[in-house]
Design a protein around this nucleic acid. Structure first.
Length: 686
DNA sequence: TCACAGTAACTC
DNA sequence: AGTTACTGTGAG
C-alpha cells in the first residue's frame, strides 16, 4: 500500500488545522520551510514557479538544485528545487514535497541561464532544463569520488599557438590575469589541421591558471577529442581530478552523467563537449569557447531549439566571463558581434594568412571555356592533372557535397540564389515549368531581376551529387582510394597515413593527415552553394575552408581546386582566403534586406487556424508579419501546414519573444488545438 | 432522485 | 496536460 496523501478539509479563509497525526508525520523544516520548484510540466501557461513545504525529514536533502518529486494538479510530477524561503507568496495552503531525488544538479548560475534561454526562445523553463540536465543515473551518482590521485601539475599556457594572431597574445594574458575578454577568432590552417585545437586548449589552460573553470563546445565528438588531446599535452588530462572532462552523449547515459557530475562537483576544471554541454555546471566559470559556430550541429533540434552560440553568449553575459568564438570561416552572427562591439576580432594579418594557406584556384565555366564540352565533366582536365601531380608527394582530399539538397532557383548568370523582389524571400519551383514563387510571401516571381548582377534569367540548380568513390577510383587506377563519411562503408575516418592516396569525404568527415594533404579538390561547387537556407554562401565557404585548412601551405606545394561553378562571392572569398570579407558583405546585405541577424525573426508553423490565432495576439514595436504561406514539402497534402514569420528590429527582440510566449500561454490555457512549432531565430528561414 | 456527459477552472 | 468541480439533461 502506497503512502496516502493526507487530505485536510479546510474552510476558505479559516486557519489551517493540522491533525496531530499529520503534524507528527510531516513536521515542517524549522528554517526556510518553503521550497520554490520548477515543476516539469508541458503547458506554456504553467511556466512559473510553485511553492511547496519542506518536510523536516527532507530539510537536509532539499538543497537548491536538487531534483524533487511533487504532487501537482492531482498527479505526481518531477521538478527542480530552485530556492528555499521563509515565506510564500502563495495565498493558499502549500503541499509538502514528496521526495528529494539525489544530489544537486542545477547550480544557481545554470538555473539563471536556463531562464534566460527560455525567455529568448519564447519557450518554457522546464523544456530548457530537460536539455540542460542529463537523465539521472543512480548507480553513477553512488560511485565513489575518484580517489585523490596525484594532482596534475599546474597547466602550461604556452601562447605559441596564438602568436600568429593580432590580439592573440593579449587575449591569453588577459585570461591568465583573470579578465573576461570576448573575441571572434578566425583560425589559420596548421600542421595536421590541429593548431586550432592547441589554441583552444591554451586559452582554456590560461583560464584555469587564473583559478577559474572553462567550458569548450565543439560540433562533434571528433573535434571534442582533438581538443582533449591538446589539453592533455598542456597538463590538463581528461578524466583526472583537476583536469578536463569529456561531456558528450555518444558514450551512453552513464558516461554522460558521470562527466556531468564531475563538472558539477568541481572535480573537472575544464569541460569539453557537444552542444548540450553549453549548459554544463562548470564551477567558477571564467571562459566559454565555441568552435565552428557556423556548424549546423550547434542547433538543438528539440524545443525551444536553442543554438549553442546564443546559449554561450547569454552565459558569458550572465556569468561575466570571457567568450571565444572560433572557426576557419566567419558567420554573419559572429560578424554582427564584432560590429556591435560585443566582441573583438582576433585574426592573422594578410601576410601570415598567405604564408600558411594553400594556393587556391577556382575552375569555373569561364576558365574552362576553352575545353568546350569537357567543361561539363565533373572532373575537368586541369583538376585531374593537378591531382595526378599532387599524388606524387602526398594524399589528396576530395570533398563531395552531401546529396539531397532541396531544389532551388538561382540567377543563371552569377548563380546567386534568387530572391523575391517584394520581401527578399527565396524563390522556389513547385511544379516543373511553373513560374517560381516566393517561399515566404507566396508572390509569383514574374519579371524577376537578379539583385547582384541584374541578370534576368533563372535556372534550377542541379540537386545532389551522384559522384562515387568508385568513379574517382576508376579515373586513377592503381591509387588507393579511401572514403570517409557517415554513408561510406568504413564510416568517418579520423586520420589517414601520410602517403599518396585519394581520400573522398563529405563535409565534416575529412580525416586529418600528419603533414597535410598535398591537394584538395572541392567538387560540385554549384551544389554546395545551392539550397534555400539564408546562410548558403557562408556555409559553403565554411565547409570549403575546413577542407582547405587540411592542405599544406602553398610554400610546400599545397593547392586547392574548386570545381563546378559555385556562386561567385563564396568562390572569390575562398580564392582570396577571406572569410571576414564575405561575412562583412553578407551582413551588410542582410541589413539592407531586413534579414537576420540584422533583424530578429520568429517562425510559427502549424495548421492555419492555430497559426493565425497565435500570431494575431502577438504585438511588438515595429512588428511585421510575413505570410502565413503553406509550407512546401514532399507530401503535398490537402490541408498543408502554414508558416508565418514575425520580424522586428533587434532591440525589439525581447519584446517579441515575451509577447509570443504570452500568446502561446493563452493558446495552451484555452486549448486551441493543433500541433504548433514556434522557433525564435529559426536556423533555416526558407 | 441519481447518473453521467460536456465543460470550465485550477494546478503551490 | 491532466484532474476535479460543476452544470445540465434524461430515465426511473
Amino acid at each position: 500500500m502506497g503512502p496516502v496523501e493526507p487530505t485536510q478539509p479546510t474552510l476558505a479563509g479559516m486557519p489551517r488545522v493540522r491533525s496531530p497525526r499529520l503534524a507528527k508525520e510531516r513536521a515542517v523544516a524549522a528554517e526556510l520551510p518553503v521550497a520554490r520548484v520548477c515543476v516539469d510540466v508541458q503547458p506554456a501557461h504553467l511556466d512559473r514557479l510553485f511553492d511547496y513545504l519542506v518536510p523536516a525529514d527532507l530539510d537536509d536533502a532539499a538543497r537548491p538544485g536538487v531534483r524533487v518529486k511533487v504532487r501537482f494538479g492531482g498527479q505526481d510530477a518531477d521538478g527542480y528545487l530552485l530556492s528555499r524561503h521563509e515565506q510564500s507568496e502563495h495565498a493558499g495552503t502549500l503541499t509538502p514535497l514528496r521526495r528529494v531525488v539525489g544530489e544537486p544538479v542545477l547550480t544557481a548560475e545554470v538555473a539563471r541561464l536556463a531562464r534566460a534561454v527560455a525567455d529568448h526562445y519564447a519557450g518554457t523553463l522546464a523544456d530548457v532544463l530537460r536539455l540542460a540536465v542529463p537523465p539521472r543515473h543512480a548507480r553513477v551518482e553512488a560511485e565513489q569520488h575518484e580517489p585523490a590521485g596525484p594532482a596534475p601539475d599546474a597547466p602550461r599556457a604556452v601562447a605559441t599557438a596564438w602568436t600568429p594572431y593580432r590580439g592573440g597574445a593579449a587575449l591569453l594574458q588577459h585570461l591568465v590575469a583573470g579578465g573576461s575578454p570576448r573575441a571572434v577568432w578566425t583560425a589559420l590552417p596548421g600542421p595536421a589541421g590541429e593548431r586550432w585545437a592547441d589554441a583552444v586548449a591554451q586559452a582554456a589552460a590560461a583560464c584555469v591558471l587564473s583559478g577559474r573553470g572553462a567550458l569548450v563546445v565543439a560540433p562533434d565528438a571528433r573535434d571534442v577529442d582533438r581538443i582533449l588531446a591538446a589539453l592533455a599535452s598542456l597538463g590538463l588530462p581528461a578524466g583526472a581530478p583537476g583536469g578536463a572532462v569529456r561531456l558528450t552523449a555518444d558514450e551512453g547515459p552513464a558516461a554522460r552523467y558521470r562527466a556531468f557530475l564531475a563538472a558539477r562537483r568541481g572535480v573537472a576544471r575544464v569541460v569539453v563537449g557537444t552542444r548540450a554541454s553549453a549548459f554544463a555546471p562548470v564551477a567558477d566559470l571564467g571562459l566559454v569557447v565555441l568552435w565552428e559556430d557556423g556548424d549546423p550541429l550547434h542547433a538543438e533540434p528539440r524545443a525551444p531549439y536553442p543554438h549553442a552560440r546564443q546559449v554561450l553568449m547569454l552565459r558569458a553575459e550572465l556569468a561575466g566571463c570571457a567568450a571565444l568564438l572560433g572557426g576557419f570561416g566567419r558567420t554573419v552572427e559572429a560578424q554582427r558581434l564584432l560590429e556591435t562591439g560585443w566582441a573583438r576580432q582576433v585574426a592573422a594579418d594578410r601576410a601570415v594568412v598567405r604564408e600558411r594557406t594553400a594556393r587556391v584556384r577556382a575552375l569555373t565555366a569561364v576558365e574552362l571555356a576553352r575545353e568546350g564540352a569537357a567543361a561539363a565533366a565533373r572532373l575537368p582536365a586541369p583538376a585531374f592533372a593537378a591531382m595526378r601531380q599532387a599524388l606524387a608527394t602526398g594524399p589528396v582530399l576530395v570533398q563531395v557535397p552531401r546529396a539531397g539538397y532541396v531544389p532551388v532557383t538561382a540567377c543563371a548568370r552569377c548563380h546567386a540564389p534568387a530572391r523575391c523582389a517584394t520581401c527578399t524571400g527565396p524563390l522556389g519551383l513547385d511544379a516543373a515549368g511553373a513560374v517560381p514563387s516566393c517561399r515566404w510571401c507566396g508572390r509569383l516571381a514574374t519579371d524577376w531581376a537578379c539583385r547582384q548582377c541584374g541578370g534576368r534569367a533563372l535556372r534550377s540548380v542541379r540537386v545532389g551529387s551522384g559522384r562515387t568513390t568508385e568513379e574517382i577510383g576508376r579515373a586513377f587506377p592503381g591509387i588507393t582510394v579511401r572514403a570517409s563519411g557517415s554513408h561510406a562503408g568504413g564510416g568517418v575516418l579520423d586520420t589517414v597515413p601520410d602517403r599518396p592516396a585519394i581520400v573522398v569525404a563529405t563535409p565534416g568527415a575529412e580525416p586529418v593527415t600528419e603533414h597535410g594533404y598535398a591537394a584538395a579538390v572541392l567538387l560540385d561547387a554549384a551544389v554546395a552553394t545551392s539550397g534555400e537556407g539564408l546562410a548558403v554562401e557562408p556555409d559553403a565557404l565554411r565547409r570549403w575552408l575546413a577542407a582547405a585548412a587540411l592542405v599544406r601551405p602553398a610554400t610546400d606545394g599545397g593547392q586547392v581546386l574548386l570545381v563546378g561553378d559555385g556562386a561567385a562571392r563564396p568562390t572569390q572569398a575562398l580564392v582570396r582566403w577571406d572569410p571576414a570579407g564575405l561575412a562583412e558583405r553578407e551582413l551588410a546585405e542582410r541589413a539592407a534586406l531586413r534579414l537576420p541577424p540584422a533583424v530578429a525573426m520568429a517562425a510559427v508553423t502549424g495548421p492555419r487556424q492555430a497559426v493565425e490565432l497565435v500570431v494575431g495576439r502577438v504585438s511588438a514595436p515595429g512588428l511585421a508579419v510575413l505570410g502565413p504561406v503553406p509550407v512546401t514539402g514532399p507530401g503535398a497534402t490537402l490541408d498543408p501546414d502554414v508558416r508565418a514569420l514575425l520580424r522586428v528590429a533587434p532591440d525589439a527582440a525581447p519584446a517579441l519573444a515575451r509577447s509570443l510566449a504570452q500568446s502561446l500561454a493563452v493558446r495552451s490555457a484555452r486549448r486551441e488545438g493543433g500541433t504548433l512549432r514556434t522557433q525564435v531565430d529559426p536556423p533555416e528561414v526558407l
